[in-house]
Design a protein around this nucleic acid. Sequence first.
DNA 1: GTAAATATTGCGACTAATTCCAACTGCAAC
DNA 2: GTTGCAGTTGGAATTAGTCGCAATATTTAC
Lengths: 161, 161
Amino acid sequence: MRFPWQQKQIVPTETSHNLTEELTRQGYRMTPQRMMIVDAIEHTENHISAEDIFRQVVAKYPNVNVSTVYRTLELLEKLGLVTKTEMGVGHIVYHPLEKGHHHHLICRECGNVVDLDESVLAPLKESLQQNYQFTADLRHLGIMGLCAECKQKSQNKTANG
Amino acid sequence: MRFPWQQKQIVPTETSHNLTEELTRQGYRMTPQRMMIVDAIEHTENHISAEDIFRQVVAKYPNVNVSTVYRTLELLEKLGLVTKTEMGVGHIVYHPLEKGHHHHLICRECGNVVDLDESVLAPLKESLQQNYQFTADLRHLGIMGLCAECKQKSQNKTANG
DNA sequence: GTAAATATTGCGACTAATTCCAACTGCAAC
DNA sequence: GTTGCAGTTGGAATTAGTCGCAATATTTAC
Ligand SMILES: [Mn+2]
Ligand SMILES: [Mn+2]
Ligand SMILES: [Zn+2]
Ligand SMILES: [Zn+2]
């Protein structure tokens, strides 16, 4: 198999971030593929989808395979470096935890998203630990529901219909 | 198109349950396909996967298509009659709400599942309503995390390794 | 150095779920 | 009755994601 960076001597930039450091520290190899994937994750403001990562990476190096993207994301998630969250039906995004811990309230009707500090989930997390000895993974939730406006509308519809 | 119940005069039993009543009440047609799908959901103890529903239905009527199963589940979910929950990675189950409201604590390591009364989530639901005017849909969650045993093991591993 | 063992990748096959469309059904209007 | 129309379905195509495996890359043992 012939890899493009062997022919072209192009090396991805930005190799000294936390994700990279943590991967190498734990004995994983920082391959060019992983560098580019990590780069894409760290250059996003907040969330990024697997497809977006793949598009960015494949734009530079067409040979990189989509399964490598998924495998790397799975590894980063296993190591607790990124979270995987469903933000609305079928819309899965990844979030690097070094960019802050928080949650999202997602309206099922209008799609509006409100951010939520992680402290709001702290009582639940504590309660599950105390009463069930269960360490819940509540780091980046997408909580579905109805915003005030859409709830109002749906109640009107029921009353009038 | 020729449907098997047209030839064989076989009509599914159990047509007077809550799901059926609610569908007809809201003006949806109770087709033989929907009867069989609803029948499968109501005869399960707790959870059922789309594939299991499809297998049960297709055993009686080979012509029924899998997309009809998914469409019916989507409809029932939209009407608030069943919930769709991920119980561990990629394992999606449906739960008829008439069979009770509760949640599940799922250990990421050993896969062990502990049931949780819905009252445990009530404070969070209330807090989101009060402070964010957001009506969260917290009816049948699969909360991932680590059970006490697996957490102990993972800590030992980190300490010794 | 070389050889063996391990980690990682690309690739193609596969799976669960969705989407599109033409065909079919049931109901109301005439 | 027939016609028109909205609701529903089957089937094929499509999609996101996973899996097994051989090829490649890197590390370890000697
Ligand atoms: Mn976020
Ligand atoms: Mn349940
Ligand atoms: Zn809304
Ligand atoms: Zn466990």
